[in-house]
């Protein structure tokens, strides 16, 4: 018998998003948080932790790859480098 799987997200420092760092096993959320602290922040890697039951994550499927992500590829106007800035304009 083993404990369920939890995914761990750590905020490396203030100002940054939580990032997925790995997973662990724990019987409940309280224990998962503590295990995450001991396992993933032994070297001061974080200032905040989220734990999520692995079964609670809904993921996009690789089969939907093209439908989900390909349409974004030609919308280059969403990126600032698409635009020409007239010479001489600063701070833009």
């Amino acid at each position: 018998m083993s404990w369920p799987l939890w995914e761990v997200f750590v905020r490396p420092r203030r100002g940054l998003n939580h990032q997925h760092v790995g997973s662990l096993h724990a019987a409940d959320a309280e224990q998962a948080l503590r295990n995450a602290r001991d396992l993933y922040t032994r070297r001061e890697e974080g200032v905040s932790i989220w734990v999520v039951p692995a079964t609670a994550i809904s993921a996009s499927s690789p089969e939907e790859r093209d439908a989900f992500f390909a349409p974004a590829a030609d919308k280059i106007y969403r990126h600032p480098t698409f635009y020409e800035v007239p010479e001489g304009a600063e701070h833009i």
């Binding site: 662990l24 096993h25 724990a26 503590r34 295990n35 001991d38 396992l39 032994r42």
Partner: peptide, 11 residues
């Protein structure tokens, strides 16, 4: 009893 606890006790 579990690896996670091994790490915790060592801490």
């Amino acid at each position: 009893p579990e690896l996670e606890e091994d790490v915790a006790l060592a801490n």
